[in-house]
Simulated scan of single mutants.
Amino acid sequence: MIKTATWIAAIDRVSRWLGNITATLLLLMALLAGLVVLLRYGFEVGSIALQESVLYLHGAVFTLGAGFTLLHQGHVRVDIFYQHWSTRRQAAVDLTGLLLLLLPVLLFFGYSSWDYVMVSWQRWEGSPEAGGLPLVYLQKSLILGLVLALLLQTIAEVGRCITTLSGARS
């Protein structure tokens, strides 16, 4: 059987890799947004495809970076009490939230968006705008990317909580 620390570390590496990709996409998004502004106001040239590229990258940054954010505990949390609790109590609260809130929501998102994404792929859905990108099906797939990235990191966090609660060394 694989040691808990081994598979937690493997999932953490995937989340860090997605975080690095997200950082690169964020830089690209900022550069493209600047280019859109420069072209529009500097040269009075507009590009629907370029504008949609910025929107697609924006979606990718938020969906693919979600697991990385969970890895670094960057999600919203009210720390009024939590910050003063012991590590074991924090792990118990985290485990409860992961299993009773995050996991069911992720499963619901995955289940309810599957057909939506698959229909888009079947139609090779593209932009309704003239000159837009023919890649709407990829953008919609980011919903499943969000579910997968967060689900993987949730599994790692659950493992980390259980390890902490059991008092085992990883």
Rank of each mutant, 00 (worst) to 15 (best):
H84N: 15
G34E: 04
R88Y: 04
I143R: 09
G132A: 04
T87I: 14
L152M: 06
E125W: 10
A9N: 15
H72Y: 10
G42C: 02
S170M: 10
Y82C: 06
Q122S: 14
L98K: 04
V36I: 08
L71I: 00
Q73M: 08
G97I: 00
M118N: 11
L31K: 05
L55H: 04
V78G: 09
L103S: 12
L165W: 02
G132W: 06
K140W: 05
A10N: 13
K140F: 02
A33C: 12
L135I: 15
L38Q: 09
D94M: 01
F68R: 02
G145A: 02
V61F: 09
F109N: 10
T24C: 12
L138S: 07
I143S: 12
G145K: 00
H84I: 12
A33F: 11
T63Q: 12
T164N: 02
S113D: 08
G67W: 00
R123F: 12
H75T: 02
F62D: 05
S15A: 15
N20L: 11
L101I: 15
S127P: 13
A156V: 11
T24W: 13
I48W: 01
G167D: 12
I155Q: 00
G132T: 13
T96D: 09
S166V: 04
L38C: 05
A30E: 05
L148C: 08
I80W: 14
Q83Y: 03
G167V: 08
A60G: 01
L100Y: 03
L95T: 06
S53M: 10
A168I: 06
E157H: 07
R123G: 05
S141L: 14
V119G: 04
L102E: 03
G132I: 13
Y41T: 11
D115K: 07
I155P: 03
R88A: 15
A30N: 09
F109E: 10
L107C: 13
C161Q: 07
H58F: 13
W17C: 01
A49W: 09
V105C: 07
L39Q: 13
G67R: 00
C161D: 13
Q51Y: 02
R13F: 01
D115N: 12
L25Y: 07
L95K: 08
L142C: 02
M1Q: 12
R89C: 03
G145T: 01
E125Y: 09
F62M: 11
L165M: 03
F108P: 07
N20M: 12
Y111P: 02
V14T: 10
L151W: 05
I48S: 01
G97M: 01
L148E: 03
I2G: 06
T63G: 03
Y56I: 10
L101K: 03
V14R: 00
Y111E: 07
L165P: 07
R160G: 02
V136W: 05
V136A: 11
L151R: 01
Q122A: 15
L32F: 13
G131E: 10
L133H: 09
I48K: 06
A49I: 07
Y56A: 12
T63H: 07
P128M: 05
L99A: 13
Q83S: 15
R40T: 13
S53E: 03
T164I: 15
L38W: 14
Y116T: 01
V37W: 03
Y56P: 10
L133A: 02
W114P: 08
M118I: 12
G46P: 09
A5Q: 14
S127L: 06
L107H: 02
G126F: 05
G110F: 00
R77F: 06
Y82D: 11
